[in-house]
């Protein structure tokens, strides 16, 4: 079949030319998943970050958690949780949420090493995140700083999928209904009490499985229905 590159694929090619040699350029050498394939045929990487705040320019990544999904099956063997070393004190306001201490952070890895481990896994896969602007923003910025190019990636944002579902069904909802754990309860998903990047990444993966299962009709369901 003739492959028609999407806009994102053009961006990928362009970034590849700009990128310094390294893990990002290797990532960019892989094609992005096709959007017209059945969602069960694609591979995914569900990811969550803990950060010092919400400003993608000034705040820092503290930890990264991710897990790979082959079609409709989450592969727990691929689950990773990495704490990142940062060059400043962790603000108390964020520490209450992610509970990463300065000591733990000091024992963490360099962000470049964490990304060098992540990018080959992400290559060729669709990223799943809940409120993905955070993940895309922080990782994209880190890539630009480290390797001089952005990170084109196909994204399923489970929050956006939920938002669309509410609107399609014309259900009234509050913004708190769009939180990862509230949505999980709606779909009878387990509630993970530990709040860390990996358990949230896993929760997002499970949420996507549930959302997709609810869209299933047994027929072919293209990936693009879920992309943002």
């Amino acid at each position: 079949m003739f492959f028609v590159p999407s806009f994102l694929d053009w961006r990928r090619q362009w970034q590849r030319l700009r990128a310094r040699p390294g893990p990002l350029r290797d990532y960019l050498a892989h094609r992005l998943p096709r959007t017209d394939q059945d969602w069960r045929a694609a591979d995914y990487l569900a990811i969550d970050l803990e950060t010092t705040g919400l400003d993608t320019e000034r705040d820092l990544i503290l930890s990264v958690g991710y897990v790979v999904m082959h079609g409709n099956r989450i592969d727990l063997a691929s689950a990773r949780h990495r704490v990142v070393r940062i060059d400043r004190r962790i603000p108390e306001a964020s520490a209450v949420i992610h509970q990463i201490t300065d000591d733990q952070s000091a024992g963490g890895l360099e962000l470049a090493d964490v990304l060098a481990e992540l990018l080959p896994v992400l290559a060729g896969k669709v990223m799943i995140a809940h409120h993905a602007t955070i993940e895309c923003g922080f990782i994209g910025n880190a890539c630009r700083r480290l390797w001089r190019a952005g990170l084109p990636v196909r994204v399923v944002d489970t929050q956006v999928v939920a938002h669309r579902t509410f609107e399609r069904r014309q259900t009234a909802f509050k913004s708190s209904d769009l939180r990862l754990h509230s949505l999980g309860e709606r779909y009878n998903l387990p509630r993970y009490s530990a709040h860390n990047a990996l358990s949230d990444a896993l929760a997002a993966a499970e949420l996507f499985l549930a959302q997709a299962a609810y869209r299933e009709t047994g027929d072919w369901l293209p990936l693009k229905k879920f992309l943002w």
């Binding site: 727990l76 499970e206 299962a213």
Partner: peptide, 11 residues
């Protein structure tokens, strides 16, 4: 053991 598992959601 958890690393040997995968997860599925069945309606």
């Amino acid at each position: 053991l958890p690393k040997r598992l995968s997860v599925r959601y069945i309606r």
